[in-house]
């Protein structure tokens, strides 16, 4: 199944497939959002936008309109990992 990052729900994982906007993709790639890398949709801001994702081992915040330019595949919903010691 393929969709955009903006349509994921909190807690869902996915793999970046490609981008629909070349100019934005440059900035996103520099920040570590590369095709083939895993992203986790962490949460949204209180008013629904922007959102926080985990990518390349750190947290990145971006607006929904930017997330909508990132195509995602291989979505899976992982159980929220409980804090392990």
């Amino acid at each position: 199944m393929q969709t955009t990052l903006s349509e994921l729900k909190p807690g869902q994982h996915g793999i970046i497939l490609s981008f629909t906007d070349l100019e934005l993709s440059l900035k996103l790639m520099e920040m570590g959002c590369l095709p083939g890398s895993e992203v986790v949709f962490e949460r949204t801001a209180p008013l629904g936008d922007p959102i926080v994702i985990t990518v390349a081992g750190y947290q990145l915040s971006l607006r929904l309109q930017e997330a909508a330019t990132i195509l995602i595949e291989g979505i899976r919903t992982e159980k929220m990992t409980k804090d392990y010691k």
Partner: peptide, 11 residues
């Protein structure tokens, strides 16, 4: 210029 918002949330 387009306004965009791509921001690292540092630890």
């Amino acid at each position: 210029e387009r306004s965009y918002f791509i921001l690292e949330l540092p630890v």
